[in-house]
Computed example of a mutant assay.
Amino acid sequence: MWIQYPLLALLLLIVILWLVTFVLRIRAIQAKNISVSDMFSVNRSAFPVHLRLLGNNYDNQFQQPVLFMLGLFALELDALAGPFWYGCAAVFVVARYWHSYEHVVRRDLLKRTLAFTLGTLSLLALWSNYLFYLFALND
Results as ranks from 00 to 15, higher is better:
Y86F: 12
L80S: 03
V93S: 05
A89Y: 01
A89C: 00
W85Y: 15
H50N: 13
V105N: 00
N60P: 09
L75T: 10
N57L: 02
M69L: 09
A74G: 09
Y58A: 08
A89R: 01
Y97C: 08
M69F: 09
W85F: 15
A90M: 00
C88A: 15
L54P: 11
L70W: 08
V105S: 01
P65G: 04
L80N: 09
L53Y: 11
P48M: 08
P48H: 09
L72P: 01
L54C: 07
D78G: 04
M69C: 06
A90W: 01
V94I: 15
V94C: 15
G71P: 04
F68Y: 06
L70V: 10
G87E: 09
S100A: 12
D78N: 13
V66Y: 14
L51P: 11
L80Q: 12
A89H: 00
P65C: 03
V66E: 13
F92R: 02
D108L: 05
D78F: 13
H103R: 02
F73M: 15
N57M: 03
R107Q: 14
V91D: 04
P65K: 07
Q61S: 02
D78K: 13
A81I: 05
F62V: 02
A89I: 03
N60F: 04
L54K: 11
F62D: 08
F84K: 12
D108I: 08
Q64G: 09
N56L: 00
P83V: 05
L67W: 07
H103T: 02
L70K: 01
R52T: 13
Y101L: 02
H99M: 07
G82P: 11
V104H: 02
F68V: 06
N60W: 03
V66R: 14
L53R: 11
S100W: 04
R107N: 13
Y101R: 02
F73D: 10
Q61K: 00
L75M: 14
C88H: 14
V94S: 13
E102M: 13
G55F: 01
P83E: 08
L54Q: 10
G55H: 07
V105Y: 08
N60V: 01
L75P: 04
A95N: 03
E102Y: 12
